[in-house]
Write a protein that binds this DNA or RNA. Sequence first.
RNA 1: GGAGGAAUGGCAGAGUGGUCGAAUGCGGCGGUCUUGAAAACCGUUGACCGCUUACCGGCGGUCCGGGGGUUCGAAUCCCUCUUCCUCCGCCA
Length: 427
Amino acid sequence: MLTLKTIQEHPEEVIRKLQIKQFDAAGLVEQILSLDRERRELQAGNDLMQSELNRLSKSIGEYIRSGKNEEAEKAREETTRLKEQIKNRQKRHGEVEEELRNLLTELPNLPHDSVPPGKGSEDNVVVREGGHLPEKTDGLLPHWELGRRFGILDFELGNKLTGAGFPVFIGKGARLQRALIHFFLDEAIKAGYVEYLPPLMVNEDSAFATGQLPDKEGQMYALVQDRFYLIPTAEVPVTNFYRDMILDAEKLPVKNTAYTPCFRREAGSYGKDVRGLNRVHQFDKVEIVRIEHPDRSYEALEEMVHHVEELVKQLALPYRIVRLCGGDMSFTSALTYDFEVFAAAQQKWLEVSSVSNFESFQANRLKLRLRDPGFKKPILAHTLNGSALALPRIVAALLENNQKPDAIIIPEVLIPYTGFDRIELPG
RNA sequence: GGAGGAAUGGCAGAGUGGUCGAAUGCGGCGGUCUUGAAAACCGUUGACCGCUUACCGGCGGUCCGGGGGUUCGAAUCCCUCUUCCUCCGCCA
């Protein structure tokens, strides 16, 4: 959520910057500004009347204590009239405030100056590539075939238990999952992140604060009876730790990491790139989350990109880093880098990580602030997060890229975690 | 699941209808003293909204777990939800 102050002080800049995100904000901005004027007017009037009422109430007390019952009765009558007025105006004030809040939550975050213009993924800018693309790809099997052949991954079984998009990992396949999670967490801890194991369900307040509600409600699995939501990413619980908090600026940065399963309905995304592990409803992910001082959040973003890059490098996967264009960015992000790895059999780039700086957009909803001696009042913190990493597509690429006719070779860095260096055909 | 108790400022903890944003202690910040520090003493110490102001600031409003109610007036009374504690039952 943008702050009202930003909109009041730079309305034309807000409109111009949101154009880069392919968002026409002119109408909304105007509505917000006029509604805010109304809100302030109402409040000024209400405060005045409330002040008068408080004064009268006090005087009644004094009259009664000094035995002036007649005066007390007179003042009492006056308050009845005043109270009626206040009640009506307060109702309107409340409505205006709610409406204002609703409108504010409709505005996306402003893109950073370095965000390239563009409409969709074709306009994203590749900032760096690494690893080696496979030389020959003839005859390579896609990972869903490999999963079946090697007996490590079963989609039909998941279908039977739950439905499409809930794969079951078996034997060395399951072990590989666990190894990857362990490896990713160890690397994050080495880089100074504190590990958390949070709840996998959150309440409405949490879902609202990180922006899943109200817009992306349809993307989450809801537990209707208890009004909980299954988390679509660890970002939700781990960022919500800091809801309604004022942190000491000196105690920054906050660097947290968490492994969680993630649950996504993926409504409306059927039909394209959904085969196998490319898009599933439940998957494992290690997330990194940071809370930073506004002065150094972009420095932090670069550190996070570097961290994720080291992970894909160590896994020896061909990768590229793209800076998302305005039209392809998320609602809440100011700047996002996506990581893609190349899956040799599908001959496709698969997104495995998204690293973003939300600046103060998320902090404003969270009411996450910093006490900085340089400022009289608490200032909004900056929040960032990134996947480090999401498992299914990493597994897809590992299987496809490391396949031999009779085995799948495990990357060296994972062997201490898996306890084996290859997955062989079942006997 | 049953019975009882509780939720107050960064923390501890007083306050059971009016002058209470709230005693007191601790912590934090500033000062006196000191070569420096500690101790002691003095002062100060929340968030949000609005009006005002060149700035310092000033004025008004809201906030005592959340929501609703009673009352001229609520931290205090009533209803409701949430969380925590004690006891009993059940259970991994």
